[in-house]
């Protein structure tokens, strides 16, 4: 009887190890889901932020609307994607004498992938490049082209379907955007929804 109990205990311990391995691998590679079902094929999602801001040391650039169009798919159970369009609207600076003359995403598409950090899902967008030309005769950066480059990591909240890019999401994912050799701050809260096959469906990653 005692031997039988030992055998059961050992087997359950082995199962627990197996289960832990499965659980770890599942959380390490989140997939795109609609209505809790893994995405099959591809989809286009749209994210749009109100009041997204980007601070180059000393000068903050704000855009009233900051959209991104992301083509997504699951590869071997892991969510991947490509940012294909990043239109920006009504961008201004916090300086009364500096205007944003030109601003736009460059070198699209930007590859993206999902990852998990401490049980929370994140989207990582690589190869980010945004070019900005400022103007204003009395502006210290008049006529200067500044390029913002790097990798951006945003926290995905499955309940609200919102991706949040801020200081803590960059720190959690070990990502950074740089301009003028310095790390810059970028804050954006992006409600996100499907644009193609899964319109109106709940979007989540896990």
């Amino acid at each position: 009887m005692r031997t039988k109990a030992t055998a059961i205990g050992a087997a359950l311990a082995a199962l627990a190890v197996l289960c832990a391995m499965f659980a770890t691998s599942a959380s390490a590679a989140p997939a795109w889901k609609f209505e809790a079902k893994s995405l099959e094929g591809s989809e286009v999602i749209l994210g749009g932020a109100l009041d997204s801001s980007l601070t180059i040391p000393g000068l903050t650039t704000k855009c009233e609307n900051f959209l991104y169009k992301l083509s997504i798919k699951n590869e071997a159970g892991t969510g991947k994607g490509e940012v294909t369009e990043v239109p920006l609207y009504n961008c201004t600076t916090n300086s009364e004498v500096c205007a944003v003359s030109k601003i736009g995403a460059e070198k699209l598409p930007w590859p993206s992938k999902l990852t998990t950090v401490s049980t929370s899902p994140y989207i990582i967008i690589e190869g980010v490049k945004v070019g900005i030309i400022y103007s204003g005769e009395e502006c210290a950066v008049d006529g200067i082209l500044v390029a913002v480059t790097g990798t951006a990591g945003g926290l995905i909240n499955n309940t609200t379907e919102i991706a949040t890019f801020d200081k803590s999401s960059f720190a959690a994912t070990g990502t950074a955007l740089k301009a003028l050799s310095s790390t810059i701050e970028w804050n954006g809260v992006f409600p996100t929804e499907a644009f193609q096959w899964h319109r109106e469906q709940a979007l989540s990653v896990s």
């Binding site: 749209l46 994210g47 749009g48 932020a49 109100l50 855009c63 009233e64 609307n65 959209l67 239109p87 920006l88 609207y89 009504n90 961008c91 944003v100 030109k102 601003i103 736009g104 995403a105 460059e106 070019g131 030309i133 082209l145 609200t160 379907e161 919102i162 409600p191 996100t192 929804e193 109106e200 469906q201 709940a202 979007l203």
Partner: peptide, 19 residues
């Protein structure tokens, strides 16, 4: 009528990237 948020509708034309 939907689970999640709607992407905000931008006003005006998008900014132009440097040529």
């Amino acid at each position: 009528g939907k689970h999640g948020p709607r992407v905000p509708q931008p006003k005006g034309a998008p900014e132009q990237a440097p040529t």
